[in-house]
Design a protein around this nucleic acid. Sequence first.
DNA 1: CGATGCATGTAAGCTGTTACATGATTGC
DNA 2: GCAATCATGTAACAGCTTACATGCATCG
Lengths: 188, 188
Amino acid sequence: MRELNELEGVAVGIIGENAPCTAYTVRMALKSSPSSHWRASAGAIYPLLERLETEGLVRSVVDDNDGRGRKLLHVTRDGQTALKAWIKDIGRPDLIANVFDPIRSRIFFIDNLPLDEQIRFSETTLTALEGVLADAHRFLESRPAEAGLSTHLGAISGVISAQSRIDFMKTVQKALKAQQADADHKEC
Amino acid sequence: MRELNELEGVAVGIIGENAPCTAYTVRMALKSSPSSHWRASAGAIYPLLERLETEGLVRSVVDDNDGRGRKLLHVTRDGQTALKAWIKDIGRPDLIANVFDPIRSRIFFIDNLPLDEQIRFSETTLTALEGVLADAHRFLESRPAEAGLSTHLGAISGVISAQSRIDFMKTVQKALKAQQADADHKEC
DNA sequence: CGATGCATGTAAGCTGTTACATGATTGC
DNA sequence: GCAATCATGTAACAGCTTACATGCATCG
């Protein structure tokens, strides 16, 4: 059985949690997830689900109670097996490796900006990150432990990640302001 | 002037730091970076640098001292401007948004595994993350503050990120083991 | 003199995106 | 009745990957 890629694994997981549900439900679940890495575009989801269905990991039943022939999806036994394999696949080094962060990419080259703009950079980034943290908290509150431990833990991950990025940017800001104080001192 | 995408921004930044250097240098720098998000494949780098050169952001001088006609790259004034704009572009919400983490993706659906396999998952992941943290530390030690503040800060980011993922997985492990203890208790 | 590293490139393919197209349902 | 949302799809394109191809340099 073929290994699922990231989006496929998440899609099967979402269907498993919400079955019976439509492809649209999958898209909306992806959009509301704490790391909106995927735009959950129709052009990605519909062909993907078609593929999973022809492979027998997902099955769909057309429900025409309302007049629009919605396709209600559910995960097959093979789909469950593939999902489990996908989760355990975390052993792969590239999946564990440090996450990609556009802020970090820019920090590496921040000395291309004059110092005052560097500090402005740290300020706007910090403000934006506070917003991300607030979002993560709201998401967490909507996923209490009683409603399912794994979803709750996933939500916690979002909060911890946002908090650690804030901690990092505070370190950056401190270093930059120390440098500025140093420059001011020499000027006198 | 067109906005640089992530890989382009990083590439220009690397050339600026190492100039005059070859495309190969850029690839190696990308590979050794703490978040190896990009494989730095030739098929990505060479067309990208060609594009940047025709747009006047990068210039190359052929150096044929050894017999192989290496192209030595440097960033133009326009390239510097574009790099600065790329850095400041961090205001965009999708760049600040919570990072994508395959571990988190799987935690959301971990209850599809039996409890003992969930705990095994947390153990193998933690071990692997300790390795990532060790790598990040080594990288940091090779980038002391004296050798350049921004590179040093970038390296710190890798350490903080790895540490926060470890903290999270410890939380997960604790919750899972509590659940197991609970189950054992009921069994008696 | 052979393996490894440096160095430059191309072709095919995968995976996602944006943008478009269509139509039914629901709530105001 | 009109807007927003639910719902399903397609076509063109962007951006990166793998895999291949080539050849010189350097070190043991």
